[in-house]
Simulated scan of single mutants.
Amino acid sequence: MKLKLFVLSTILLSMASLSAHATVAANAHVTTISQTRTGIVDVYLDVARTNLPACAGSNTTVFRFDATTTEGQALLASFLVAYTAGHLIDVTGSGTCDAGGGAVESISYISIRKQ
């Protein structure tokens, strides 16, 4: 019984990981940062992504995060630095659209570098 449960849980986890495709935007510049009054931030880039997660629809140049959290505030600061300085960034999505609802992929990782 334990073996069957283990096999079933392994299969379900494998299926979940296949359905969530995190995307990467490489060598991008931030073009727009918009924030709602509830703290949800959309960051628009000048690079379109492909292979978006199903939840993201056709939003190929935007990522979203919640700036009311400590992690979100750190992301906002990083994006503001990149935007102000015009630095290139790489952004990795989470493969989910869990920030603020809607069809925009959430952010998992950002890397900023000088040109």
Rank of each mutant, 00 (worst) to 15 (best):
C97P: 00
N27P: 08
T23C: 07
H87G: 10
L18K: 14
S111Q: 14
N27V: 11
S94D: 03
T32K: 10
R37Q: 15
R64T: 04
S17Q: 07
T23G: 09
A48D: 14
T84K: 06
Q35T: 13
A99E: 03
T50A: 14
L5P: 09
K4H: 12
G39H: 00
T10I: 10
L13E: 05
I40K: 02
V24D: 02
M15I: 13
Q73S: 09
S58H: 07
Y83D: 08
L3R: 10
M15E: 12
G93D: 00
D42I: 06
A26K: 15
I40W: 02
I40S: 03
I40M: 03
I40R: 01
L13V: 07
Y83M: 12
Y109C: 10
A85H: 12
L5V: 15
V62D: 15
L80S: 11
Q73Y: 04
L80R: 15
L52I: 14
L52R: 08
I33N: 12
S106H: 05
S106N: 12
F6G: 07
L8P: 08
D46H: 03
Q35N: 12
A99F: 01
R49F: 11
G39V: 01
V91H: 04
R64G: 03
T69A: 05
L76K: 07
L8D: 07
D98Q: 14
V7K: 05
S106E: 04
S108V: 15
D46P: 04
T36S: 15
V62F: 10
V47D: 05
L8T: 09
V81A: 15
R37P: 13
S14P: 11
A77D: 09
T23Y: 03
F65S: 00
N27C: 13
T60M: 00
K4Q: 13
G57Q: 15
K2I: 08
K4P: 06
H29R: 04
A67K: 09
T70W: 10
S9A: 14
T23D: 04
T96Y: 01
S58G: 10
T10M: 07
L13N: 13
Q35Y: 09
T23A: 06
G72C: 06
A85F: 13
A82N: 05
D90E: 12
L45G: 01
T50Q: 14
R49S: 09
L52T: 09
S108I: 15
G86H: 08
H29A: 11
V62W: 15
N51R: 06
T60K: 01
F79E: 02
I11F: 11
A26G: 14
V104P: 02
G102V: 05
S111Y: 13
H29V: 07
G93C: 02
S94M: 04
Y109G: 08
K2E: 15
D46Q: 06
T92C: 12
I110C: 01
C97E: 02
L18T: 11
F65C: 01
I33T: 10
T36V: 11
G86A: 05
A20T: 14
L76N: 08
A85Q: 15
S58D: 08
G39Q: 00
C55W: 06
A22S: 05
G102L: 03
F65H: 03
L12K: 00
V43M: 04
I40C: 02
H21I: 10
V24S: 01
F79A: 00
V43H: 04
H87Y: 08
T23L: 06
T92D: 08
F79G: 00
Q73M: 12
L80Y: 13
S94H: 02
T68S: 09
T10D: 05
C55Y: 05
Q73A: 11
V81R: 07
L88G: 08
I110E: 01
